[in-house]
C-alpha cells in the first residue's frame, strides 16, 4: 500500500467532506418533500384509519394549481399559495363527502380500491384540465444558492424547509392547543368515546380529510419550482411519501418528519456510494426492513398490526 503524502490526503478528505455535505443537502431537500407528503398520510390515518392512495394525486393538483395561479395568472406568492391550498382542500372534501362517506363497509381492501380509483380519476382530470405537457414555475425567490463549505444549498430548498417547519409547528399547535384539534385527536383515539362526549365524528373525519389533502397541496406548492409539474407526477411521490410515513411510524407527526428526512438523505447517499439506478429501491428496501424489524416505525405507535 502506497503512502499518500499528507497535504494530498488532507485535500482528498476535504473534497469527500464537501461531497457528503452536498449529498446531505440533496437529501434534505427531497426529504422535506417526502416529509410533507408523509404528514398528509399520517394525519389521515390517525383520524380515520384510512390510507389514501390518491394522496400523490392531490400533490399533483397542488403543483398544477400553483402553476396556474403563480405561473400563468401571476398572482403574488402568498395569495397564490393560499388559493392553491384552498382549492386542493376543497377537492379533498368533495372526495371525502362523495366517495369515502358513501362506503357502507369500510374494509381496508374496499377503501384501497376506491382511493386507487380516485387516483386514476384525478390523474385523468389533471390531464384534461392541464393537458399532457409539463410545466415549470420560477423559484419563490431568486437568491443564488448558499455556499456552505463548498456545498450548495438551493434557495428553494431553504424555502421548502422553512415552509415545512412552519406547517408542522402549526399543526402541532393546532392539535395541542385548540379545541378543534383536541377534538380531532380524541376522535382519532376512539370514535365512540368522542361521540359520547359530543364530538361530531363525521365533521372531524371531514376536517382530517381537508387538512390532509391541504398538506398534499402544500407539498405540491413547494416542489413546483424545483421540479416539473405534470398530470402524472403524483404516483411515485405518493409512494415515496408513503414509505416515509411507514418508516417514521404511521400516524405520528414527528415520525413522518424523521421518516421523510431519513429517506431523502439515504437516497442521496445511495446515489453517491451505491448506484443511481437503484435509487428508487432505497425507499422500498427501507420499507421492508422497517416492516420486518419494527413494523410500528421508528416512532412506534402502540398498536402495530402484527402478531
Amino acid at each position: 500500500m502506497e503512502l499518500i503524502p499528507w497535504p494530498e490526503l488532507h485535500a482528498m478528505d476535504q473534497s469527500i467532506m464537501q461531497e457528503i455535505l452536498q449529498y446531505l443537502f440533496s437529501g434534505i431537500t427531497n426529504g422535506a418533500i417526502y416529509a410533507v407528503i408523509a404528514i398528509g398520510f399520517s394525519m389521515l390515518y390517525n383520524s380515520t384509519d384510512l390510507i389514501n392512495f390518491a394522496h400523490g394525486e392531490f400533490v399533483m393538483l397542488g403543483s398544477l394549481c400553483m402553476v396556474t395561479f403563480f405561473g400563468s395568472m401571476h398572482l403574488p406568492l402568498v395569495p397564490a399559495i393560499i388559493l392553491t391550498i384552498i382549492c386542493v382542500a376543497i377537492a379533498g372534501l368533495v372526495f371525502e363527502r362523495l366517495a369515502i362517506r358513501s362506503v357502507k363497509h369500510p374494509e381496508p381492501i374496499v377503501l384501497i380500491i376506491i382511493t386507487v380509483g380516485a387516483s386514476i380519476f384525478l390523474r385523468g382530470l389533471g390531464m384534461i384540465i392541464w393537458g399532457k405537457d409539463a410545466y415549470s414555475i420560477p423559484s419563490f425567490s431568486s437568491h443564488p444558492p448558499l455556499d456552505i463549505a463548498g456545498a450548495k444549498l438551493l434557495s428553494q430548498s431553504i424555502w421548502i424547509i422553512v415552509i415545512f417547519l412552519v406547517a408542522s409547528v402549526g399543526l402541532q399547535l393546532f392539535y395541542k392547543k385548540t379545541l378543534t384539534g383536541k377534538a380531532m385527536e380524541a376522535n382519532a383515539i376512539s370514535k365512540r368515546a368522542a361521540w359520547i362526549v359530543g364530538i361530531p365524528s363525521k365533521l372531524m373525519v371531514m376536517l382530517a380529510f381537508g387538512l390532509s389533502t391541504a398538506m398534499g397541496g402544500l407539498a405540491g406548492v413547494i416542489i413546483a419550482p424545483i421540479t416539473m409539474s405534470s398530470y402524472d407526477m403524483g404516483t411515485m411521490l405518493g409512494l415515496k411519501g408513503f414509505c416515509a410515513a411507514m418508516l417514521g411510524g404511521l400516524g405520528s407527526l414527528w415520525g413522518a418528519l424523521i421518516g421523510g428526512f431519513l429517506l431523502g438523505i439515504l437516497e442521496a447517499l445511495g446515489v453517491g456510494f451505491v448506484s443511481s439506478g437503484l435509487k428508487d429501491a432505497t425507499a422500498f428496501v427501507l420499507l421492508l426492513f422497517i416492516l420486518y424489524v419494527r413494523p410500528g416505525g421508528i416512532i412506534s405507535s402502540a398498536d402495530a398490526n402484527r402478531f
Binding site: Y45, I51, P108, I112, L239, F242, C243, M246, L250, S275, G277, L278, D280, A281, F284, V285, L287, L288, L291, Y292, P295, A304, N305, R306, F307
Partner: peptide, 27 residues
C-alpha cells in the same frame, strides 16, 4: 416475514416487495 403483518401493513410490505423486484428487472 411478510405474512406476519396484516391489514395496511401487509399491503405495504407486498407493495415494497413488488417495487423492488420490478427495479431488479429494470436494472
Amino acid at each position: 416475514p411478510t405474512l406476519k403483518l396484516s391489514g395496511y401493513y401487509l399491503g405495504m410490505g407486498t407493495l415494497g416487495f413488488g417495487m423492488i423486484v420490478n427495479i431488479l428487472f429494470r436494472e
